[in-house]
């Protein structure tokens, strides 16, 4: 396991770093603050960037390796920036029984990433989540906060066709605007 440095640009890291001192100042400077600080950082940026991890380590006088060790222990922490489209696949009991793992695997293969990761073009991120509260629709996926019930492999395909169409449309609109202006 290594840090996904390539995904985060220098400018992004700089912007994150600029906000960290304020976040840190809310916590006592001691080991026990590690998890609350990580939660606050993720709460603000939606993930823990490699640069943020280093800053947290520096602040608490730990090595970044130790911070990673603690952070990777908990499922709640993410190390990849969220994608433009966030895909969450339910792995709650009902969805699991209804084949949620097959749906997850479909997404994994389609996007060539694992749960918790983001595609290199930052278009999609994939996550496994626990029961999202609509078990009657199992298996469920949540895509950009829209619940999609009765998921099927064909629906996974359909979803990406839709995204493709949408992207194409945006491109055309942009072109039309440019040629008009």
């Amino acid at each position: 396991m290594t840090a996904p440095e390539h995904l985060v640009t220098e400018e992004e890291e700089k912007a994150i770093k600029a906000e960290l001192p304020e976040i840190f100042s809310r916590f006592p400077r001691e080991r026990g603050s590690l998890i609350p600080i990580l939660q606050a950082v993720q709460g603000r940026f939606k993930f823990l960037s490699p640069g943020a991890i280093r800053e947290v380590a520096k602040y608490l006088d730990l090595s970044s390796s130790e911070v990673y060790g603690v952070a990777t222990f908990y499922n709640q922490f993410r190390f990849h920036p969220p994608g433009k489209h966030e895909i969450k696949v339910c792995m709650g009991t009902a969805c699991h029984v209804a084949g949620g793992d097959i749906i997850l695997e479909n997404f994994e293969r389609k996007l060539n990433i694992k749960p918790g990761e983001t595609t290199p073009d930052r278009e999609y991120s994939l996550e496994r989540v626990a029961c999202v509260g609509c078990c009657a629709l199992a298996p469920v996926a949540v895509v950009d906060d829209h619940v999609i019930g009765y998921m099927q492999p064909s629906k996974v395909e359909g979803l990406f066709v839709q995204f493709e169409v949408q992207r194409e449309k945006e491109k055309r609109e942009k072109q039309a605007k440019e040629s008009a202006g």
Partner: peptide, 14 residues
């Protein structure tokens, strides 16, 4: 890094 059956040794430098 990680936990349970997925635990492994990881390497991170500063």
């Amino acid at each position: 890094a990680r936990r349970g059956f997925d635990t492994m040794v990881a390497f991170f430098s500063d």
